[in-house]
Amino acid sequence: MTTPHSPIRVGIVGVGTWARHGHLRVLALLPQYRVQAVYSEHRDRAEAAAREYAIAHIADSLDALVHHPEVDLVVVLNTAPQHEHTVRAAIAAGKNVYCEWPLTTTTAASENLVHLANDAGVRHIVGLQRRHAPHNRYLQDLLQQGYVGKLRSVRLHVSTHYLQALRANALRWTAAEENFSSVIAIYAGHFLDMLFTATGWPVSVLGLMVSQFPQVTIVETGEVLDSSAPDQLVLSGLLEDGAVISIHIEGGKRNGSGVQLDITGDAGDLKITNRSAFGDVGDDYVIEGAHGDNLPLQILPVPDSYQRLPASGLPSAVLELAELYHVYAQDVAEGTQAAATFADAVRLHRLLDAVKG
């Protein structure tokens, strides 16, 4: 049992690439947490994580992990098709639960998890961390403070060289559309949530999803997999105040990928860029703006007051994840609900359903 001053005791389910690159490093950075137990279907991965991060317990099964008496928060990091079963087990055990986005592979299943978690009275968090990043909190404040005046248009382009026709074996599960793990499911989910947390959510959308990689080749083996998962998304629509939105998200871009966001108002403009959609060390968002008419854009540094994490050399994408964990720990300590929840995941599921038509 945690007290207001004791660390949140974590049990990890799944030790794949993102668990190792992101979660384990973040949890080691933040004093609000202590990883107590780990479970993986690949026991060697669990053993390696336990050695590197001094994790006291290696669970022999999912059931043992979720019922472990020294686990307060179950962190679900296996593949999207495995999320529903794992989250259900955590809820049934009465544990607070964090699940990576996508929450599940279908809207209906995600809706059901919201009801189950709420009925059980457990806290639930979904891995939509970009909304909590310093640049996005600053952007949201700039918009609310009227920097651009009344919004007129919002244009976002996100591209990544990942998830193209050649993929590592570790990403083979992204090829099947039913796994809801395409670049559109994952990246569109993260960036649409980031954007609309700042600007407000659309009241109407039209969209197009296209698959341009009908076959995926596994690099290590040469195996060829059929794929109908989308790798291009084009979305247009309206925000509540009448602003026009235009969004393009694409995977498999060979060169020059990254993030470009342009926001136009009746009193000014903002431009937000990043050379990477999944940032390494130094891949930070740059915010530029001009308040007035026909003026050059000037860099608007994110004020130091928006920085709230311990100093580290972690990549920028990993630090975004740390922001979500920071917010959740604050929620637990103060009884608030600021971290992204399963309900936020459902809203995103519904938006992508509307785009797909």
Results as ranks from 00 to 15, higher is better:
A322R: 02
V87E: 06
G200K: 15
V71K: 00
G11I: 03
Q215W: 09
Q82D: 09
D60A: 13
Y98K: 01
L116F: 03
L142G: 11
E41T: 15
P102T: 07
Y98M: 08
V148I: 07
L195H: 07
R167S: 07
V302P: 05
L192V: 12
M1R: 12
N255Q: 13
I299T: 14
R350A: 12
V224A: 11
G335S: 06
E320A: 04
T217A: 07
G121K: 00
A90V: 08
A117V: 02
G265T: 10
I91R: 00
V318L: 07
V148R: 01
R123D: 06
W101D: 02
G237I: 10
A56R: 11
H135W: 14
L171M: 13
P81F: 09
H190L: 15
N179W: 02
E41V: 09
L238G: 10
T221F: 11
D72K: 00
V71W: 03
P230V: 14
I8Y: 01
S182A: 12
V259F: 13
V13F: 08
S6Q: 14
L192W: 09
F342E: 00
T104D: 02
L321S: 05
L324P: 01
F213I: 13
L163A: 10
G242A: 09
H157E: 11
V97I: 14
L324S: 05
V244T: 13
T336F: 08
D344I: 01
H132L: 03
H42Y: 13
P214D: 12
G251K: 07
P134T: 10
S276R: 11
D266H: 12
V281W: 09
L324K: 02
Q307W: 11
A37C: 14
K271V: 12
H124W: 05
L77F: 11
H248M: 08
E320D: 15
N294D: 13
S228E: 15
A333L: 06
L166C: 06
E323R: 03
G357L: 08
D283K: 04
H132F: 10
G292T: 10
R130F: 03
V205W: 09
S61T: 06
F180V: 02
Q129R: 02
T17A: 12
Q298I: 09
D141W: 08
V234T: 14
I186S: 01
I12F: 04
D331T: 06
Q145N: 14
W173I: 05
A50I: 09
I249N: 01
S110C: 04
F180L: 02
V15P: 00
L77N: 03
T199R: 08
